[in-house]
Amino acid sequence: MTVTTITDAQLAPKDYASDQEVRWCPGCGDYAILKAVQKACADMGLVRERTVFVSGIGCAARFPYYMSTYGFHTVHGRAPAIATGIKLANPDLDVWVMTGDGDGLSIGGNHMLHVLRRNVDLKIILFNNEIYGLTKGQYSPTSRRGTRSPSTPLGSIENPVSACAFALGAGARFVARSIDTLQAHLIATLKRAHAHRGASFIEILQNCVVFNDAVFDHITGKEVAPEAQVLVEHGKPLVFGKNKEKALRLKPGTIALEVVAATAPDVLVHDETNRPLAQLLAALEPPFPTAMGVLYCSPTESYEHDFYAQKGAALGKGDLDALLNSERTWEVVP
């Protein structure tokens, strides 16, 4: 399969917006994600008719309605399966899966696991607001212990799943994290995901102003961000802090990370092809800084590529008469 890249350089971000009124709550982080995606599409010159946004159900999953591309709003949790079928039918389409933490990690967790391990060539964008938005605020599989919600009035007693650690565990070859409000970073991360062939998984920390407002403030707040985030970049040291004065390195004699002065010896340099390192970064949580950016990128052939490249796999118009007459036949004469 040859991937021909056709671009449409004339289009502006607004040309990727559909004529539908956007119906998210005012102030919802989804707006920022929509804006970033439209900007990334314009920057990359994506051809609208060859681009398909597929989603499950949830606030996040409304996304396709707001794009002027092809879009398929499907059933709760199953977008990865539907997108897989689309890619098997037409590997040339540029297919994005837009999902939420409930959609992608609860009801659709199984499909997420398999689409990642198969490495279907999809951009999978998971809007993590640590809550079920559309159903009015129940805790989700990414909600932290103690989360109070209509269904957990005393606080959740469940351990949350880390989206990125899950994706890495499932065998994803591209795993990244960003934030709704971190526009430039988010746009750059979307472009990286798009450039990657195979399943590209991005977790976006997204603020649900109505049911889980400020849940990421300790990471995303302007004041705390420099200390609370480490922006990872391939080949660059893993430094953070207001003046980039802090760094991460392997605690000697262990396989755990520790925070040291940026000037300390053996500061880690980010290697996005290093899966164990990606696992360590994905799992970082306060008091450590939360890792943002491309945690892991190690391309291999995609599922559809391998399907069509398999020996004897050429799809064709075989001789039907030969098929029907294969094996033993006999003639009955009048």
Binding site: A83, T84, L315, G316, L320
Partner: peptide, 26 residues
């Protein structure tokens, strides 16, 4: 395959029906 048939063993029947529907959509 020589007759234009792509087969896909999905992770469950839900995914199987989803993939088939996605293919029809495409």
């Amino acid at each position: 395959r020589a007759y234009g048939v792509v087969t896909f063993q999905a992770e469950d029947e839900i995914a199987a029906s989803g993939a088939a529907l996605g293919a029809s959509y495409a």
